[in-house]
Amino acid sequence: MKIEVLSDKSALIERSLHLTVTKMTTAIAERGVCTIALSGGSTPKPLYEAIAAQQLPWEKIHVFWGDERYVPPNDLNSNQLMARQAWLDRVNLPEENIHPIPTDEVEPTVAASKYEEHLQTFFQISSGEFPRFDIILLGMGDDGHTASLFPHTEALQARGLITVGNKQDELRITFTVPLINHARCVMFVVAGADKKSALAQVFATDADDFSYPSRLIQPQGELWWLLDRDAGEELQVSTAAES
């Protein structure tokens, strides 16, 4: 695990951009393709806008989502809509390379099953196997949740690829903990002083995993925590340079 505390949000986005693009180009060089799963929320939007300004082989990049609110794709709360407006619609990324979570089924469990089957087909894996995403981008809420894995919810114990997440009465579709933990690289991008308390518990030696679900993210590959100073200043880690 690597933790970096950047001086402010601009430095956080710059560092996240550099690391994301580096991982993308490495994946393409080594395997001919890059698979990346996006997070929602407000923090990654400037990162996506910055990625859109890069010159990358878009036809070799496949974009997925780690979670989605159960709303139509044109809803203002849609993670897909935000990513399309900030990045995907601004570059020549083939539509077939975009893999949104379906939200048009009557039952979210059916949508979750459809997305799981889609991942199995795309990654050419059998039931019980897990894909290895090159990059999974994650945020963290002030309650310690990540993706749509909320404290003390059934989704935390799901062992397939995709499950239904719940935030009170708001339904979502989300990657499971074991799916995230099979990634080659997981990158948390976290900003804001309201995250301090949860971060302290996430990095504590004796906190409860089910109270702070981000603690459950321990991937086989690399784990990066990129924090702005407002979020991470009280952690006992080295402060990173801005570049």
Rank of each mutant, 00 (worst) to 15 (best):
G66L: 10
G66F: 04
D67A: 13
E68A: 05
R69D: 09
R69E: 09
Y70F: 15
V71A: 01
P72A: 13
P73V: 11
D75T: 01
L76C: 05
L76V: 10
L76D: 13
L76Y: 13
S78A: 09
S78R: 06
S78G: 06
S78P: 14
S78H: 04
N79T: 11
N79K: 08
Q80F: 15
L81Y: 04
L81P: 11
L81D: 00
M82Y: 01
M82F: 04
M82C: 08
M82D: 00
M82Q: 07
M82V: 05
A83Q: 01
A83G: 02
A83V: 15
A83S: 09
R84P: 00
R84E: 15
A86K: 00
W87D: 06
L88C: 04
D89W: 06
R90G: 03
R90Y: 02
N92T: 13
L93Y: 05
L93K: 01
E95T: 12
E95W: 04
E96R: 15
E96W: 12
E96N: 10
I98A: 02
H99I: 03
H99E: 07
H99S: 07
P100H: 12
P100D: 12
P100V: 09
P100L: 04
I101K: 00
I101H: 00
P102L: 14
P102M: 10
P102W: 10
T103D: 05
T103I: 13
T103P: 08
E105F: 14
V106E: 15
E107V: 07
E107I: 08
P108T: 03
P108A: 02
P108R: 01
P108E: 01
T109R: 10
T109H: 11
T109P: 00
V110R: 06
A111Q: 06
A111M: 01
A111W: 10
A111P: 02
A111D: 11
A112W: 06
S113R: 08
S113D: 13
K114F: 05
K114C: 07
K114Q: 13
K114H: 12
